[in-house]
């Protein structure tokens, strides 16, 4: 790109309504910054901590139950304290957030991967194809995602060995959350498709015998994907919560690769014996993370689709 082109691009970007609305929404700016920081810290965890809390060899039981740095008995080596096995809470949170984010993102990817194609196909074909797909979605929507996840988890637990289960735990979790929430994306996509398919630009494409898959892919998809992706942002927050819930219940990720939910569960048992920090900091992180992602999602929704408000 030429320099003039770049400058024009920059000006267009700064002048754009979306940039404007972003810059005039302090909550969204903060939320975006927080999310970004959490992302960077979670996935670049080794850069921010020297501890490897989930390597059993590196742990020292002597370090167990150290309170946060500012409490009596705290040390600057463990800012947020340590848990019963001497793990540094701060490091555990970094690695835990990484797991939470991974599960959240992958499961939403899976559910839009199922939901968007099914929604477009249902909306475009109509008739019995539509009826079948949407009835399946309806049935699925009546079962809470947690139940579906519990069911899938139960099946995998009984059918494979314990060791193997630890290996496949995260994929299973992603699959169960992903499968549980595709119907909402299918519904949004379908209703968009119903509107778009009768527009004349589709007729113009049919006129030159564009094959149906191409019409779906190149004409309908770009016009219906926006609202779906916006809802998907909020979906990430929901998925993180579901994952945390499942892990808290003990059916999510195993303690060897804990997520925020697992950390909260581990800490929970120490809450009444006074070691509040073991559960408090992971919980706080979870709340901040979910809140930030939600705020971004809300802003996206309001900016791009005033009608959804």
């Amino acid at each position: 790109m030429t320099k003039a082109g770049l400058i024009k691009f920059r000006n267009d970007f700064l002048d754009h309504d979306i940039t404007y609305s972003f810059l005039h929404s302090p909550a969204t700016i903060i939320a975006a910054l927080v999310t970004l920081v959490m992302f960077v810290m979670a996935f670049g965890a080794p850069l921010f901590t020297s501890y490897t809390p989930f390597d059993p060899g590196s742990l020292n039981l002597m370090d167990a139950f150290i309170p946060p740095a500012w409490e009596d008995g705290g040390t600057a080596l463990h800012v947020m304290g340590t848990d019963g096995q001497g793990r540094d809470i701060f490091a555990a949170i970094l690695y835990g957030t990484q797991v939470s984010l991974t599960v959240g993102l992958l499961s939403v990817l899976l559910s839009i991967g199922i939901g968007i194609p099914l929604g477009i196909i249902a909306g475009y074909s109509g008739g019995w194809v539509d009826t079948v797909i949407m009835r399946i979605a309806d049935i699925q929507l009546t079962i809470p995602p947690i139940l579906i996840a519990l069911m899938i988890d139960g099946i995998t637990r009984t059918s494979i060995s314990r060791d193997l289960h630890e290996v496949v735990a995260i994929p299973v979790l992603v699959a169960s959350i992903g499968i549980a929430s595709w119907p909402q994306y299918a519904r949004i996509t379908r209703s968009g498709t119903l509107v778009e398919r009768n527009k004349d630009y589709i007729a113009a494409a049919k006129l030159i015998r564009t094959p149906v898959p191409l019409i779906l892919l190149r004409h309908i998809l770009p016009n219906v994907i926006g609202p779906t992706l916006i809802v998907a942002t909020i979906g990430v927050a929901v998925a993180i919560i579901i994952e945390a819930t499942l892990s808290f219940l003990g059916v999510g990720v195993p303690p060897t690769t804990p997520s925020l939910g697992t950390l909260i569960r581990i800490g929970n048992s120490f809450l009444f014996s006074g070691e509040w920090w073991i559960t408090f900091f992971p919980a706080l992180t979870l709340v901040i993370l979910v809140l930030s992602v939600n705020l971004i999602g809300d802003w996206l929704r309001d900016t791009f689709n005033p009608k959804l408000r």
Partner: peptide, 19 residues
């Protein structure tokens, strides 16, 4: 045959793909 038929539609807003 398809090449020979083209159409101009009523609504100038719905007949062009906005994306």
């Amino acid at each position: 045959a398809a090449e020979q038929v083209q159409m101009i539609f009523q609504s100038p807003y719905a007949s062009l793909n906005p994306r």
